[in-house]
Each structure stands twice: as structure tokens, then as C-alpha cells.
Design a protein around this nucleic acid. Structure first.
Length: 231
DNA sequence: TACCAGGTCCTCG
DNA sequence: CGAGGACATGGT
């Protein structure tokens, strides 16, 4: 199964996921329905959400985002100047709250200092520059940087996470791929299309939750044993 | 109870 | 580089 075939199979099974979930009319949309442009505030929220969701279930991040919204603090200027303890309490449900409080403040302070708190200024940079700049920030690694670039900036980079690596390993039987290897693999086999990349990654996550779990059987999986064969 | 969740950083070899 | 530990809540 080639990557594009896998994508089509997953899309047919799970339907469109419309990631990234983002606050819309006061509440977090389970799936981001409308495809019109994201607002500046929503782009910022995605950046924060991408940091908060590190190794944590999304449900917990939703609680944290709701708290930030209720406190009317989910803005670059506010977070960059907020007390760390206050932020930590608000994002408590997201886990690692002390570390993450620093991370989201660090990111906000950087955005404020260098881009007047406007993600669109940051995102106007060439992808390579943007990526290395994000990676230079403490608290932003490969996946978080790419999630921001893809879902907030809307530029086509393929996001690799633990689920994607797991999917690649199963059926492959190949040795573990590094982040860069896995990313290069997908990007070399797919059209460079941000909407496709967004949807594909979201579908892999959904599929991994339902079937391709840590200890999961390929027996029950609708893709069968050869899910990744010949990829 | 124990394990897992849309990782990243730091410290050693 | 790559392995191993720390970081922490909430759901099953």
C-alpha cells in the first residue's frame, strides 16, 4: 500500500477530521468545520495547543485551553507577561504544567519581542527559516515545530509523531526511522499539499487511537496485516 | 493498580 | 548521535 492509498483508505473509513481543533464562537470545535481562513487569534491558539499537547491526551489540553479562555489570557501579550505560577495553575490539566507554563510563555515572549505578537509576521518567513527559528526556542521540538508550520501557518510539512512512527514500523518490519527519515519518506511520496498533509496526519492519529494502538492487533484492523506493505 | 497519552530537554556514554 | 530519566494530569 502506497502512502496515498493508505490516505484514501483512512479517509473513507474515518471521514474528514478537519484538524486542528480550535476555539470557535467560544468553544473548541471538535472538528474545525469551516475552511475559511483562521483568525490571528486562532493561529496563536494552535501554537499554544501544539505545545500543550506534548505527550498528553488532547482532552486534557481542551480543559487547559478552556481555562485560558475563561481567564481571558489566551493572547500573546497576556501570556508573555503572565506569572508563571498563574499560567501553571490554568493549564494544570495538561500535565507537565510547570514546564509547559514556561514553554508557552517563552514562545509568547519571543513572538512579542520579534514579531509584535503576530504569528502572521513570523509565518511570512521561508519554511526552512521558520522551522529552524521555532526549533531554536526552548520547548519546541520537531513535532511541535512542524505542527505549528502545518496547522497554524498552513505550509506543507509532514508531521511525524509517535503514532506515525509506529504505523511505519508495523507492517514494515523495518528498523526504526528517525524523525527526518520518516518525514522525508512521506514528503517524497505525496504531493506537496498542506490540506492533504493536515488531513493525513489527523487520520493517522484517529486510526492509531482506534486500531493501531501500542498493544494492538493487526488482526481486527480493517487494513489487514499488510497495511504498510510496499510503502 | 498500572499504563498510556497528538514530546522535549538534559545528561551521559 | 542515541539511550535513559524527568516532567504530571486524567482516562480506562
Amino acid at each position: 500500500m502506497k502512502p496515498l492509498e493508505l490516505y484514501n483508505a483512512l479517509l473513507q473509513k474515518y471521514k474528514k477530521q478537519n484538524w486542528w481543533p480550535v476555539t470557535d464562537s467560544g468553544k473548541i470545535a471538535p472538528a474545525y468545520k469551516h475552511r475559511e481562513k483562521l483568525s490571528e487569534k486562532q493561529k496563536f491558539e494552535i501554537c499554544i495547543g501544539a505545545i500543550l499537547t506534548q505527550n498528553t491526551a488532547w482532552k486534557n489540553i481542551e480543559k487547559a485551553i478552556v481555562n485560558l479562555n475563561k481567564a481571558k489570557i489566551l493572547e500573546c501579550e497576556k501570556i508573555s507577561h503572565a506569572k508563571q505560577e498563574k499560567l501553571a495553575q490554568l493549564i494544570r490539566p495538561s500535565g507537565y504544567y510547570n514546564q509547559k507554563a514556561k514553554k508557552i510563555r517563552n514562545f509568547s515572549a519571543y513572538l512579542e519581542k520579534n514579531y509584535s505578537c503576530r504569528t502572521e509576521n513570523l509565518f511570512s518567513k521561508p519554511v526552512q527559516e521558520l522551522r529552524s527559528e521555532l526549533l531554536s526556542l526552548n520547548g519546541i521540538g520537531n513535532e511541535t515545530a512542524d505542527s505549528i508550520i502545518l496547522y497554524a501557518a498552513g505550509k506543507p510539512v509532514f508531521v511525524i509523531d509517535a503514532y506515525t512512527k509506529r504505523l511505519l514500523q508495523r507492517g514494515f518490519g523495518k528498523k526504526q526511522m528517525s524523525y527526518e527519515e520518516a518525514q522525508a519518506f512521506f514528503e517524497s511520496q505525496l504531493p506537496k499539499d498542506a490540506e492533504l498533509f493536515k488531513e493525513f496526519h489527523a487520520l493517522i492519529v484517529e486510526h492509531s487511537k482506534q486500531y493501531c494502538k501500542k498493544h494492538a492487533g493487526c488482526e481486527e484492523c480493517f487494513l489487514g496485516k499488510n497495511c504498510a506493505k510496499d510503502m
